[in-house]
Structure formats: structure tokens, C-alpha cells
Design a protein around this nucleic acid. Structure first.
Lengths: 207, 207
DNA sequence: TCCATTTTGTGAAAAATACCACTTACCATA
DNA sequence: TATGGTAAGTGGTATTTTTCACAAAATGGA
């Protein structure tokens, strides 16, 4: 355990992978760092080191109790609770996000959806009514939301991000293909499939 | 220039970001590594070093010609051509992917869509007819496709990936929240928004 | 032409990250 | 209650990645 030292971001970003792998296993079973590593294509030493930043969760000679480690990871990542999220941009992508079951299953709920297109405002998406983005600050504040999802075109993303941040949002999942400028202390995670495609094609030889 | 040495993957993954930033600039203008770095939140030294893996594209005292650097990056990433892509899984997400204009704009086209749901097969998605996934090998082979997108539930993703690989696919954009096992030489880029959300909430204190 | 500026390209240094290998603890068995 | 086998936790080392800082090249003005 090394509670004094700052945990590298890259370590924190691996924890969800561990969590994901554990969720495919029996709650009461045991798993070794070796086995977990093989499931994920990561060395066992890396896994043990990563976990040791937060404490010793395993038993020497035995391994890790799946259910226990899972709970500990959920605490560390603060996903041992429900998170309400605000979604801005209800196009094709926004729809898919609002309806995606994978978020709900892990405690992330889209609780408010916004757009700036008057033809969309007032319409429903599932049980949610699409609201004018002008009402975002009020809603974020009233509901005490901290997580936002941006699914608007690149040109509007920074504006939306700024509104989110001034409204109190602290973590932004950004699907717009543009980097965001946010104040210190606000987290941004960018989803950019083009980065993936373009870096993969680099390795495609002879086509 | 250091053409002999292996280029780190992390460097290749930054090139699309440079390309993205350049696309917002005047074709004929000049930009310095400093300016580009400020646009992206990356140090100027990093940008120069990254580019130097592939050759010297700038002029000392002047900077980089936007249009020229853009073309060079497109060559390096092999996005100076059109790429046909096969999409498997036409749920909400698959729909959003098939209709996303951002791919087309950069030369990535979904040219065939598959699903295993008999109620979907034969339906259209834009100009594309949804086909039975059993026909994937034939289509991939006939059209000479090398890039695949997986947008099926986690439980089916590995199976689809294996089919893709045996059919000749060399690069997979995986939207399913599960790691894929593929042979050496096949690229996988995973899109997992939950990893983003879960690692961001770790940093959210006091909520 | 000369000189002051600018900015690239790049070895070398520093920092960050990953891995190794060993000690320690735990378990099962006899 | 030894004992042999196993696997976590971790200090140290190796590797990778980033940054530094400077020589060399280009520009423009006097």
C-alpha cells in the first residue's frame, strides 16, 4: 500500500478494465493476478502494482476474492453509487447514448437531455423530455449533477462545455471530435473513433 | 528523420490529433510547433519529436506549411485514400455509426452492414441493405475490405471479431465493452465510454 | 552582406511507466 | 505443527516517453 503517493492517471484508467473483467466472473470465486492479466493482455506485475497503490486486496498464496476486489474497485472509482448525467445533443448519437443500457447497468443514468433545435425541444426520448439547452444551468444546479455528456457537432462543443462547467459539471464525456478547454479540476474524456481508425490504417500495409 | 527506428504506437495515435487541428487552419498558412501545441495542449517539443520520426516537414525559422504537413500526415496515416468498412450490429449505436458524417468526410465509408436479427435483415439503413452476418466473409472478400466496426452486444463481439479476422479484416473498431483477442498483425481500437466515466468519477470528490 | 531573430530537428537528460525478482504470508497436507 | 507450494506486495531496475536545450537553417531588415 502506498497511500501517500499520487496515483498516475494511467493507473486509474486501467481500473475500469479490471472491473469489467471481474464482472464476468463468479462473485465468490478467487482469481490470481496472473489469470486476470491473461484475460486482459496485461502483465500480472502491472496488475499487482496498480492495485497496491490503493492497498492490499489479495491474499498471498491465494489470489483475490472476486467479489471483494470488485467492491473495492467500485469504491475507489466511486461507482458504488448512482450518477445522474446530463446529455446535450440529441441527434443519432445522442439517441443511442440515452438508450444505451450499458451505462444504466453500471449506475450512470441520463437524467436530463438538451438540444438547441426547436423542432426537437419538447419531444420525448424514452421517458425524458428534451429541453432547451438554455435551461441546462438551472437543471444541473437543481439536480446537483456533476457528469455531462456532449454529443453535439464539433462547432458547438466548446460552448456547451463552457456552459456545463459554469453550471457545476465536473466530468465531461466528449463525443465531439474536438479538444475541449476546461478549467483545472474538471475532467474530460474524449471519445474519438476517427483517432482510432486513422491510427490503425497507418499499420495497414499494402492495401 | 529517423526512418530506421520503430515508431511508438503512442506517437502514431497523436498524429490524428495533429491532423484534426490542421484541418481548422488555412491550407496555405504557416504554423509553428508552438502554436499547434497550444491548440492541442501538447508541448511543442513533443510535436517536433513526433514529426521527426517520419521526416523533417518544417522549415527552421518559419514553421510548418499547413497544407503540406496535412498531406504528409495523411500519407503517413494512409488516409490519403478511401477506406471501405464493414459494420456488424445495427442497433441504435450501429445506426448512429452508419449515419455519422464524420467518417465519410475523412474517407471512411460503411459499405456493408450486417446483423444476425432476422427481423432486421433485408431492411435498409440509408442506401445500405442490412445483410445476414453469415454473408460477411463473402462480402469482405469480394469487396476487399480491411476495416471492420463491431457494434454488437459484448457477448457476441469476440465471435464477430474472429469471423472478421478470418475473412481478411485487419483493423477493428470495437464498440463492444469487452476486450478482443486477435492474431498478431490485426489492429484493434476499443471505444469504451464506461472506462472514461468510471475513471473520471474517481477524481470527483465530495459528491 | 551582415546580423539579430526565429524555429526546426535532435542528441541527451529527466521523468514516467512497466517489469523483474525476491521476500513474506498464506494454504493444504501430512 | 512442520513443510512444500503458491501468489501477493514491493523495492529496485529496465524501458519507454517526455522534456530540455542547443546547433543549424531560414528570414528579414539595415
Amino acid at each position: 500500500m502506498a497511500d501517500r503517493k499520487k496515483v498516475p492517471r494511467i493507473v486509474v484508467e486501467r481500473l475500469p478494465l479490471y472491473l469489467r473483467a471481474l464482472s464476468t466472473l463468479e462473485e465468490g470465486s478467487l482469481i490470481t493476478s496472473q489469470e486476470l492479466g491473461e484475460m486482459l493482455g496485461i502483465s500480472s506485475a502491472q496488475i499487482r502494482k496498480d492495485l497496491s497503490y490503493f492497498g492490499g486486496f489479495g491474499k498471498q498464496g491465494t489470489g483475490y476474492q472476486v467479489g471483494f476486489l470488485r467492491e473495492k474497485l467500485r469504491e475507489i472509482l466511486r461507482v458504488d453509487r448512482e450518477w445522474g448525467m446530463v446529455l446535450v445533443g440529441v441527434g443519432d448519437l445522442g439517441h443511442a447514448i440515452a438508450r444505451y443500457g450499458g451505462f444504466k447497468r453500471e449506475g450512470f443514468h441520463v437524467v436530463a437531455a438538451f438540444d438547441d433545435d426547436p423542432t426537437k425541444i419538447g419531444k420525448k426520448i424514452g421517458a425524458l423530455e428534451i429541453m432547451d439547452v438554455a435551461r441546462l444551468p438551472e437543471v444541473v444546479n437543481r439536480m446537483g449533477l456533476r457528469v455531462g455528456i456532449i454529443a453535439v457537432p464539433a462547432g458547438n462543443a466548446q460552448e456547451v462545455a463552457t456552459t456545463m462547467v459554469t453550471s457545476g459539471i465536473k466530468a465531461i464525456l466528449n463525443y465531439a471530435p474536438v479538444g475541449l478547454t476546461v478549467p483545472e479540476g474538471v475532467q474530460v474524456y474524449q471519445i474519438d473513433p476517427l483517432v482510432g481508425l486513422q491510427s490503425m490504417t497507418h499499420y495497414l500495409e499494402g492495401f
